[in-house]
Each structure stands twice: as structure tokens, then as C-alpha cells.
Write a protein that binds this DNA or RNA. Structure first.
Lengths: 132, 132
DNA sequence: CAGGATCCTGATTGATACTG
DNA sequence: CAGTATCAATCAGGATCCTG
């Protein structure tokens, strides 16, 4: 019998191909928080201070940036360095693990590049069909 | 000058590596909707009827399953076939584009497999440090 | 069987003000 | 500068009832 797919009770198979989908869900959840991916992408350019990060990631509120960074730090994707001077200085950088995200993110990016047009056309068709 | 990263105004670079991040965000947004990934994973096993899908994806409400399927259909990831009989029969299956998601999802899955433990340990450390 | 329409609630997010 | 704290608004998700 096939393992049912559930978000609450861990192990289940991922097609006929891979396993580990629950942590995967959690990872995706983190990655795709409203701002996480943007922060990660910004940090892939190199280490950055809070204020610089805030300038890079347009539209993020200081509250959400802080929160996002805390979550990424909690997961060991981002490293936070506090220099206790006045005024305070805090630097952020990706950890090794964080940098390793580049491969999977690139894979998604490639899928997007290959299929972006098709998605757009699918949406148009859908909208048109709905209009009829 | 570097292109700033923004969720509302499209083009910006993805590290020194790839481009196209805005559709990527949208894709991730879709993929990581609470249920989307589970539905996709279920459908990677093969075509399925609504009721079967609902059994496979534990805990999903009928409303959310419907909504998720509509979104995936709108993006051209899932194909919907209605057989107008009584009682109605509706089949769902991945499109080619949907099946191609396997590669990127596998990449994330692999990252998770390599780093799941590290994430767990990072969280423990973070919790411990916060406790002090 | 498949899904539309409502109502309702808790979680997310944003704006604002304050601080070491 | 880099936050924390608070309040208000928005929204996604679930429960329930209904129908071709």
C-alpha cells in the first residue's frame, strides 16, 4: 500500500524518486516566507549589514527583515555577527549550508526560465476560459 | 550598480548565478502554498480523481483541495478532465510542465537530506542560546 | 461525486512609536 | 544603527451548509 501524504505525520515518499518531504516542506516554508528568498538572494552577493540589507530588499519593513533574519539564523542558514560598538553594527552572511542552497534554488530558477512563458500563457488561457 | 531586490518590481539578479527571480518567487509561492506540494507529489504517482486525491493528501479540506487544484490548473501544472456523468467524475493529472518540476523538487529534497540534521542542530543551539 | 457560497477565527503583516 | 513593543488590518484556512 502507498504511504499517504500528510503534512503532520512525517515519512512519505516523493514520487518514485526521492524521499524526505516533510522537512522539505518545512524548508520550503521557510524559504518561501514572504521575504526569506529575497534576503537569501541578497546575501548571496556577499555579507551585508542590516541597513544595507534593508536597502537591497525593497519594500521590506524593518520588523519583517528582523524576523526573517532571525528565522534564517535559527535554521543555520544565516550567520549573525554583532559588533558591540556605538552605534551598533550587525553583519549578516550566509553559512556554508546557506550557500549550498544555491544549487536547489538554481534548479527552480531554471525550471522557471524554461516554463515562465508557458505559465503565463496557461494563466491567460485560464482567464479567457473563465470569462466565457 | 547592483539591481535592488524587490518583490514588486520584476527583474533582478539571482546571485552571480542565475536570473529570473520574480516568476521564481511566484512559482515558489504557488508550490509552497500549504497544500500545493503535497498535491503535486500525490499526482506524481499518477492521475487521480478528486476523492482519491483527498484521501492521499491527509488533512486537506475539500475547500483547500479545490482551491489548490484550481491554482495549479491555472498555472498549467495540473490538467483537469471533467466527465459529465452522474455522479460527476473529475480526473486530475500533472501536465508535462508539472512533471518537469520533479528535477527542482528533487534538488531541494537533496539539500534537505544533506542538511536536515544540521538544521535541527542549529535550531537546538539557537533555542539553547536564547534560553541562557 | 465534486465543488460553490458563507461565516468565522487565528496567524501574518504593516505602520508607528520607542530604546540601548 | 539595529533593533523591540504595540496595535490595527489583512488574509489564509477551516467548518458548515447547499446543489447540479
Amino acid at each position: 500500500m502507498e504511504t499517504p501524504i500528510t503534512p503532520t505525520e512525517p515519512p512519505h515518499t516523493f514520487a518514485e524518486c526521492t524521499r524526505v518531504a516533510v522537512p522539505m516542506i518545512q524548508v520550503l516554508g521557510r524559504i518561501s516566507g514572504r521575504w526569506s528568498l529575497y534576503v537569501i538572494m541578497a546575501l548571496m552577493r556577499g555579507p551585508m549589514r542590516f541597513s544595507e540589507l534593508r536597502r537591497q530588499v525593497h519594500g521590506v519593513s524593518q520588523k519583517m527583515l528582523t524576523q526573517t533574519l532571525r528565522e534564517l539564523e535559527e535554521d543555520g542558514i544565516v550567520h549573525r555577527t554583532v559588533t558591540p560598538i556605538i552605534p551598533p553594527r550587525v553583519d549578516y552572511e550566509l553559512t556554508d549550508m546557506g550557500r549550498e542552497l544555491q544549487a536547489p534554488l538554481t534548479a527552480i530558477s531554471e525550471w522557471t526560465e524554461r516554463n515562465g512563458d508557458r505559465v503565463a500563457r496557461a494563466r491567460e488561457r485560464y482567464a479567457a476560459a473563465k470569462g466565457i
